Amino acid sequence: MSDTTPTARERLIAKVAFGSDRYEADFLAELDAYRAEVLAEAASTPLVVRRFDCSIEPALEDEHPELLVCCVAEDGRPVALLLDDAARAKLRQLLGDQRAEVMQEAARIALSLRQFEKITGARWAAQVSENVGILRVAEALAAEGKGTPAGFYQPGQTYRRDNGTWAFRCDMVTTHPEDGELTALGWRYFRGEWTEYAYGPDDWDIDQFGLKLDASDGGR
């Protein structure tokens, strides 16, 4: 008794009584042609992915690093996206452009919320204070839309040491609430493990730290 489970094709053939070898051959040919049509239709239908679960960074020692993105399709099937350096660069550019547009639009919406009623007294002072607050928010949004200044860690880029003992993946850049100093937030690889970390302007010195960027980061 075979341990191999019959395929759907084999089970279907077992249920059909063929009158001749020629009829059986014609039937199998039509069955295989139909299967080929179904497969071709499935291959031409785009696989729509709606949910992102997690991502796995490539190992530092990989010669051709690929980012593994784990997703789930609309029909529930698991999907694994392997993004090489070029694909990551294109995706980062696309998301960066969209983020800038969203930030600029948010700044315009914030400015539209200002009020200029003809009032006096305490209400006038409150209106001025509210408008000043709105202006500060709009300025911050507009600045975010312009991106991070050159000469500092850039979101979406990974910085590494040549010997592979240190790396820093910058996820976002923020500013100090009091003095506006830039701060890069992300993940640092050190002593064999990744931990959350932050770097400031004093840490930004390519020559001092011997840093390099992944090939996808433009080689800056």
Rank of each mutant, 00 (worst) to 15 (best):
M1R: 14
M1S: 15
S2M: 09
A14D: 14
K15R: 14
A17I: 15
F18E: 15
D21K: 15
R22I: 08
E24C: 11
A25M: 12
F27Y: 15
L31W: 05
R35S: 13
R35M: 09
A36E: 12
E41N: 11
A42N: 12
S44V: 06
S44Y: 04
L47D: 04
L47W: 08
V49A: 07
R51L: 07
D53T: 13
E57I: 02
A59Y: 09
C71L: 11
V72E: 08
A73Q: 09
D75R: 05
G76V: 14
P78H: 01
P78A: 01
A86F: 08
A86R: 01
Q93H: 05
Q93P: 02
D97R: 10
R99S: 10
A100K: 03
V102W: 06
M103E: 06
A106D: 07
R108K: 10
A110W: 01
Q115H: 04
F116S: 05
V132G: 01
G133M: 00
G133I: 00
I134G: 03
L135C: 06
E139S: 00
K146P: 03
G151C: 04
Q154S: 00
T158E: 11
Y159A: 02
D162E: 09
D162W: 08
F168E: 01
R169S: 05
P177F: 03
E178V: 13
E178H: 11
E181I: 11
E181V: 11
L182K: 10
L182Q: 08
L182T: 08
T183R: 12
T183Y: 06
T183G: 02
G186Y: 00
Y189P: 04
G192E: 07
E193L: 05
Y197E: 15
Y197W: 15
A198M: 07
A198E: 10
A198S: 14
A198I: 04
Y199N: 10
G200S: 11
P201Y: 09
D205A: 14
D205V: 13
I206A: 11
I206Q: 12
L211K: 10
L213C: 08
D214Q: 12
S216D: 09
